[in-house]
Each structure stands twice: as C-alpha cells, then as structure tokens.
C-alpha cells in the first residue's frame, strides 16, 4: 500500500506535534490549576505550576531529542534508500529542522514560569 508512504510526512512533522501537545498541556494545566484556586499547591514539595510546566517541558525536549536524533542518525548513516534518496534525505532533514524549531518554542514558552507568579 502506498499509504505507508505517508509516514515520512508524519515523521517530518513529529517534532511540531510534540510542541502542540506540550503547548496545550502546559496552558491547560496552568489554567485549570489557577481556576481551581490551587495557586499555592505543591507537588513533591515543589510549587505546583512550575513543577508541571518544567516537567512537561523536560518531557517534550526529550521527545524531540529522540525524534531529532533518530533523523540525524538516519541522515548520516547512508541508509537512505537508493532510488528515493533525494526525497528521504529531504524528509529526514525536515524532521530534524522541525524538532529544533519545536525545542526553541517549548523553551521560550517555559521560561516565563521561572520569572512570573503562577497565577497572578
């Protein structure tokens, strides 16, 4: 089935899918905590909101690192199939570039939690 051929496209955008999940979870969790009046709550002794945001960001960064690392290895392993070489190089490169973009966005979105009050 040629639909299998769709998976390089999903690989190419996987980093941004991780970003989207990260963004929705971070915003959703923080909004929920604040609406429920849990600004002062803690998780394992840490303030709740920073703990959630930083935890999710760490998870997200690990995920994009895995995706990007896999693309990097395959890009430099010379295993890209002979006939579709140009095409698979391209999607692997895109996968890698996209993870860098996603990582940057996640870091920029997480930095505020170190500076601003959780719900103020």
């Amino acid at each position: 089935m040629q639909v299998v051929g769709f998976s390089p496209m999903l690989n190419a955008i996987a980093g941004l899918i991780v970003w989207a999940a990260h963004f929705l979870l971070v915003y959703g969790a923080q909004a929920t905590v604040c609406w429920r009046g849990l600004a002062g709550a803690t998780l394992w002794g840490q303030p709740l909101v920073p703990a959630i945001v930083l935890g999710l960001t760490a998870l997200g960064l690990v995920a994009v690192a895995l995706i990007g690392g896999r693309a990097w290895r395959r890009l430099h392993s010379g295993l890209a199939s002979q006939e579709g070489e140009e095409q698979s190089q391209f999607t692997l490169w895109m996968s890698l570039a996209v993870t860098l973009m996603a990582a940057l966005a996640m870091v920029w979105e997480a930095v505020p939690v170190l500076i601003l009050p959780p719900c103020g």
Binding site: I13, L16, I17, W19, A20, F23, V26, Y27, Q30, A31, C34, V49, M101, A105, W108, E109, A110, V111, P112, V113, I115, L116, P117, P118, C119, G120
Partner: peptide, 28 residues
Amino acid sequence: GFLSFGLWVHHMYATGIPSLSLAFFSGA
C-alpha cells in the same frame, strides 16, 4: 502552520487572564 495555533490568547491580553498564561502565548 503549527506555531500559529499557539497564539490565540495574543488577542486577549487585556481580558484579565493571569500573566503567566499570557507569557506562554508571548513565547509562542
């Protein structure tokens, strides 16, 4: 195409949403 979906509160900075929430959207 992806990141532009993380900006919607950008138009709601004055609605009284907590400043940390706003900052997520600023970052995006």
